[in-house]
């Protein structure tokens, strides 16, 4: 389904941002150079994987996201901690991508990047649930790390900020009209027609299906 904020472009406000923020955000829209951490084969795989994890098929955007993840790993910008049963982030990526490829070949006789979307999603579901056994790193942990990394870099793209209606950086201008029902003039305007369409599809703000709460089963029997 489409955005509820069609036509909103967070970058239209960049003249109101401080220069350092503007540069960092604008650089996210630049096509990356050759990967330094990933091999070219891994780099292609990463783009397909991230696309699957965040539900995106825009090749240019996925190339940028993959490039920014590559830079993060090449410069070892990670947070530095991990559970004892996992290797460092850089090793987790390298081993995990190798396992993903081996599993694709073993199950479908083809490379991960050559799988159909349905095959690919089926395989990733097995990885998420840990129903495939990997020798080097635990499948479930690799999936969770890949997913959170995909989220970090994909949802830091200004074009995605526009899609979800994030008001964006706000220094030095700030936000002034905070109260319920109020917006500053530069904030995204809700398109009610799109909102209705989403509601019709069982999505969006007014749709509150009776499905269970996700997450930790706090206080439930057997916890």
């Amino acid at each position: 389904m489409n955005s509820m904020y069609p036509g909103y472009d967070v970058m239209a406000e960049q003249a109101h941002w401080d220069e350092r923020t503007r540069r960092i955000v604008a650089d996210r829209l630049v096509k990356p150079s050759e990967p330094r951490f990933f091999t070219s084969t891994e780099f292609t795989c990463i783009q397909v994987l991230i696309g699957a994890l965040v539900g995106d098929a825009d090749e240019g955007r996925l190339l940028r996201v993959a490039g920014q993840l590559d830079e993060h790993l090449a410069k070892r910008r990670g947070q530095g901690y991990h559970p004892t049963h996992l290797p460092d982030e850089e090793v987790l990526w390298r081993y995990g991508l190798g396992e993903l490829e081996r599993t694709a070949v073993a199950e479908y006789g083809r490379s991960f990047v050559a799988l159909t979307p349905l095959e690919r999603d089926n395989l990733l579901l097995q990885v998420q649930q840990g129903t495939v056994t990997w020798a080097t790193v635990p499948a479930k942990d690799f999936f969770q790390h890949a997913l959170l990394s995909a989220v970090d870099f994909f949802f830091s793209q200004p074009d995605i900020w526009s899609e979800i209606g994030f008001g964006g950086p706000a220094y030095p201008r700030g936000y002034y009209r905070l109260e319920s029902g109020l917006k500053d003039p530069w904030e995204p305007v809700l398109n009610t027609e799109q909102m209705q369409k989403r509601r019709g599809a069982g999505l969006g703000p007014s749709s509150m299906p009776d499905d269970p709460v996700h997450g930790v089963a706090v206080g439930e029997a057997g916890e």
């Binding site: 389904m1 955005s3 509820m4 699957a52 994890l53 965040v54 539900g55 995106d56 999603d121 990733l124 998420q128 997913l147 959170l148 989220v151 949802f155 995605i160 899609e163 979800i164 209606g165 994030f166 995204p188 809700l190 989403r198 999505l203 969006g204 703000p205 996700h214 997450g215 930790v216």
Partner: peptide
């Protein structure tokens, strides 16, 4: 959201589109 639900793919993208709510 991801830690709570494990949501990914189209499902995650749709949740994100409702971010403001």
């Amino acid at each position: 959201v991801v830690k709570a639900s494990g949501a990914w793919g189209a499902n995650l993208r749709e949740i994100a589109r409702d971010y403001n709510f």
